[in-house]
């Protein structure tokens, strides 16, 4: 009897181990300061440098999404811009601001490779870099959110805690004020789930138009692009931002806001 129990237990343990090995363990939820973090390694390691760790929380507090992803030209998908040190040194991409005037210089030739403390402000993957801004100190007075960075960025702007810059001299084009399109509701596919009120105003204030259309949302007419929560969780449509930088998909009630009649 004891022998049978022992073997049953052993079999169960083996089965559980196999299941975990085949399906993988649950992905660790990033810590608040890690949320939105991007690792850049198109060329770093090939050039004998440590990959770059880019903190979205700091940059989104200072600049609009549109400024970086439209005017400066950073692609929306991590790793697809293909930034080289030479690009930064010529004043493009990171070098648009990291030019020793607006912010510390990125990839300048005047920093000897041995002076790793300057390089490691960005090239810091796997290291404890000494950074100018500490997440906890920087965000301590910010309105709190439930998930992601633990910050309600929308409220942070509304209450004047942040004032993201939308224009960079020499890079951005002087534009007229944006005419905001109407908000609309999206009917949830699951019965009983509150409808989604999509606010164009909230999205265009940081993104402009061409950041989302047509690359992320191709459909011209409301309802033309059919998508599901599975696709959103897969990083498509709303999931392009709302699973990486903007409040995550766990925060259901921030989108599903309209009560079902």
């Amino acid at each position: 009897m004891k022998k049978t129990l022992f073997f049953t237990g052993l079999l169960l343990l083996l089965f559980a181990s196999l299941s975990l090995a085949l399906t993988g363990v649950k992905k660790r939820r990033p810590l608040p300061y890690e949320y939105g973090r991007v690792e850049l390694n198109n060329f770093s390691e090939k050039a004998g440098q440590i990959p770059v760790v880019f903190d979205h929380w700091l940059h989104r507090a200072k600049f609009t999404c549109r400024l970086c992803h439209v005017d400066i030209g950073f692609a929306m998908k991590a790793g697809t811009t293909g930034i080289k040190a030479a690009d930064n040194m010529q004043g493009y991409y990171c070098g648009s601001c990291h030019n020793d005037k607006t912010a510390f210089a990125a990839c300048t030739t005047t920093i000897p490779r041995q002076n790793s403390s300057k390089c490691s402000r960005c090239h810091s993957l796997g290291r404890t870099a000494v950074k100018q801004y500490d997440f906890r100190t920087f965000t301590q007075d910010f309105p709190k959110g439930r998930f992601g960075n633990g910050i309600d960025w929308e409220q942070a702007e509304a209450t004047g805690k942040i004032a993201p810059i939308d224009f960079l001299a020499g890079v951005s084009i002087q534009r007229d004020a944006l005419v905001v399109q109407k908000d609309f509701d999206l009917i949830a596919k699951v019965k009983g789930m509150p409808e989604i009120i999509f606010s164009h105003k909230k999205h265009t204030v940081w993104n402009g138009c061409e950041l989302c259309h047509p690359e992320i949302f191709l459909g011209v007419k409301k309802g033309a692009t059919q998508y599901s929560m599975t696709e959103i969780y897969d990083g498509k449509y709303c999931g392009v931002c709302h699973s990486t930088v903007a409040f995550p998909l766990l925060d259901c009630q921030r989108c599903h806001t309209k009560q079902v009649q």
């Binding site: 439209v70 080289k84 991409y93 950041l211 047509p214 011209v220």
Partner: peptide
Amino acid sequence: ATERKVFLQRLKMCRDFYAFALGT
């Protein structure tokens, strides 16, 4: 080369959006 890469990307976004607006 960098200027070319950046502006071709920016031009693409801008052109695609006008095409999107035209479709609308």
